[in-house]
């Protein structure tokens, strides 16, 4: 046989070179972390978001009802150790109320995004996996939802179902905001459907459910995670706007939006009352946006790790 100087590969000894030249071991998630850590703003945003979430959970828990307890004696009292931002015109601890408001806003933001992701992934993956007329029908629904001015639809839904209910707001934002997620997932599915590794799984005899759950959804999730993170910012802003207009969370319940509304009344006497919820809102939006940007870069497997 010609070429006998060459060692037979199958079954035989494994060429030593095989090992030497392997690149260093890094799993997918290690790579993701590495890329994310390189995005400095995203790391800052991550910690900022962590602090905001922790504060929004812990402080209302520790301070009990301080966020709604009025007191004639404490009206417009200056800052102290237990009330770092002083008291407002009703004698409510401003910091405690701010944190309670943040809690409400973040809760609405995260919960609405969950609704958005659930509807979006379901509709998008169904359209993308089956294609054909199913895809056509679902995408026309998306077009219809997109063609309605979202904010007015939310206003209408909230007005119809009852102002001031947290769940109504979440559902209203969720029902109008899923279209982007659906389109992203559909686009991913359409290309994944043709991907060789999906075809390979089918050729092995894997059923539809395994193909979708094990191969397609994990690969399609990256853009959804990014969109969801950015969606938190949008949802928080929508909530604030609703509450500001009086359709959202109404006092005595606290939200960043209704704190802004109330601060209007005292704008000239105590402008700081507007600044606190305003700045908090900006911080939430910035943190979510930069986090989303960082995730976008980190989750893209095509991105290589490079410096400079």
């Amino acid at each position: 046989m010609e070429g006998t100087q060459v060692t037979r590969i199958p079954g035989g000894a494994i060429p030593a070179v095989d090992e030497v030249d392997l690149t260093p071991v890094r799993t997918y998630w290690q790579l993701v972390r590495q890329r994310f850590v390189r995005h400095r703003l995203a790391v800052i945003a991550f910690f900022l978001m962590a602090i905001l979430v922790t504060a929004a959970i812990a402080i209302p828990l520790l301070s009990g009802d301080a966020w709604k307890e009025t007191s004639l004696e404490r009206i417009n009292q200056p800052a102290s150790l237990t009330a770092p931002l002083g008291y407002d015109s009703l004698g409510i601890n401003t910091f405690a109320r701010l944190m309670k408001g943040l809690q409400t806003s973040l809760f609405i933001g995260f919960a609405a995004v969950l609704v958005i992701v659930f509807i979006g992934v379901t509709v998008g993956s169904t359209a993308g996996y089956f294609g054909g007329w199913v895809d056509n029908a679902l995408m026309r629904v998306v077009d219809i939802v997109l063609s309605i001015p979202t904010f007015f639809l939310i206003l209408m839904l909230v007005a119809f179902w009852g102002t001031g209910n947290v769940w109504v707001i979440i559902i209203a934002i969720g029902l109008t905001g899923w279209t982007t997620a659906a389109r992203l997932v559909r686009a991913e599915f359409l290309s994944l459907r043709e991907a060789d590794f999906v075809q390979a799984a089918k050729a092995l005899g894997a059923g539809d459910r395994r193909v979708v759950m094990r191969h397609m959804i994990p690969s399609a999730m990256a853009p959804v995670v990014v969109a969801a993170t950015l969606g938190i910012a949008d949802s928080v802003v929508v909530e604030a706007a609703l509450s500001f207009l009086g359709f959202g969370i109404t006092p005595p319940e606290a939200s960043l939006g209704n704190m802004l509304t109330k601060a209007q009344d005292y704008f000239y006497r105590n402008p700081l009352l507007a600044w606190y919820p305003g700045i908090t809102l900006v911080l939430v939006v910035l943190a979510a946006s930069f986090l989303g940007d960082g995730l976008r870069d980190a989750l893209d497997p095509r991105q290589r790790v490079e410096t400079n």
């Binding site: 997918y28 991907a195 060789d196 590794f197 075809q199 390979a200 799984a201 191969h215 994990p218 690969s219 497997p301």
Partner: peptide
């Protein structure tokens, strides 16, 4: 398959 990069699930 042809493309050894596309035919293996990266995850």
């Amino acid at each position: 398959f042809q493309d050894p990069y596309a035919s293996l699930n990266p995850r």
